[in-house]
Amino acid sequence: LSAKTITRLKADWWMDYELWQKRDLGSRRFLYIWADGVYFKPRMAEEKQCVLVIVGADEYGRKELLAMTDGFRESTQSWREVLLDLKRRGLKQDPKLAIGDGALGFWTALREVFATTREQRCWVHKTMNVLNAMPKSVQAKAKGHLHDIWQAETKAEANVAFDFFVKTYGVKWDKAVAK
């Protein structure tokens, strides 16, 4: 493609993005939201760029990308701006549950903007954090045992799986178990 064509396409895509970013969210109720900051380093930039992403799910289980914008790392102020923008665009009721990683900025902003939303740590992130504190030789087996916890049918079964994980790995890899 020529430079002129790329410039034209980029301008069209940018207009589409701006319209998408301003769309009304008031016609649906999003019960669940997932939040994460995604980092990458563009070739020309000195610092890593952070893109703040929020995905929502409505009462029918339909997921939709609600927000995707650049932020300063994953600061409380950056997340606050994203969440307030969702409210401005029509997300009037607090989601029932928010799922995110361990980045504290999101949780602080969530409590300010959607005070009644319950919080849950993302199991994918938690699993990665636990496994990173263990040697590669045991990670596959430990990952299966971690899945037994969060995929349990009942809280009682999850507690049994959790206790098993602690007893199995706690002696040699106490830092992993502490996570």
Rank of each mutant, 00 (worst) to 15 (best):
G100R: 02
M44R: 13
V130A: 01
Q49C: 04
M44V: 07
V124C: 08
D94G: 08
W20E: 09
F30Y: 04
A57E: 13
S78D: 11
A98L: 05
K48G: 03
E59H: 14
A45V: 03
I54W: 09
G100F: 08
I99E: 10
Q120F: 12
T117S: 06
L65T: 04
T108H: 12
T117F: 03
Q93M: 15
V38N: 14
L19I: 13
D36M: 04
D94Q: 07
V82I: 03
I54S: 11
Q93D: 15
R29C: 09
V82K: 00
F72G: 00
T116M: 11
L131R: 02
A109L: 09
F30L: 09
D58S: 10
R62F: 07
W123L: 07
L31V: 05
D24P: 04
M44W: 10
G61W: 05
K41M: 06
D70S: 10
L25T: 03
A67K: 06
R89F: 10
D58K: 02
E119Q: 15
R89T: 10
P95M: 07
L66K: 01
P42W: 07
V113Y: 07
M128E: 15
I33H: 01
E59I: 06
A67S: 15
L110T: 06
Y32A: 02
F114I: 09
F114T: 08
M128K: 15
L31I: 01
V53T: 13
D70Y: 04
W107Y: 07
M68T: 11
K96R: 13
F30A: 03
V55I: 15
A98C: 09
Q120H: 08
R28F: 14
L52K: 00
R121D: 07
E59Y: 13
E74C: 03
Y60W: 05
R118C: 10
P95W: 00
E46R: 12
M68D: 01
P42T: 01
L65K: 00
W107P: 04
Q120P: 06
L97G: 05
K41S: 14
Q49R: 03
L25W: 01
E59P: 01
V51I: 12
M68K: 13
R121K: 02
K41L: 13
L110G: 03
Y17T: 08
K22F: 02
M128R: 15
K63D: 13
F30I: 00
G61I: 03
Q120G: 08
I99F: 02
Q21F: 11
T117V: 03
T76K: 14
L91C: 10
Q93K: 15
E119A: 15
R88E: 15
K92R: 14
Q49P: 01
E81C: 15
Q77C: 04
V82W: 00
D70T: 12
R62D: 06
Y32S: 02
P42R: 12
C50W: 01
T116R: 14
T76G: 05
A57T: 05
D70R: 09
I33Y: 00
E47P: 01
M15A: 12
A103M: 08
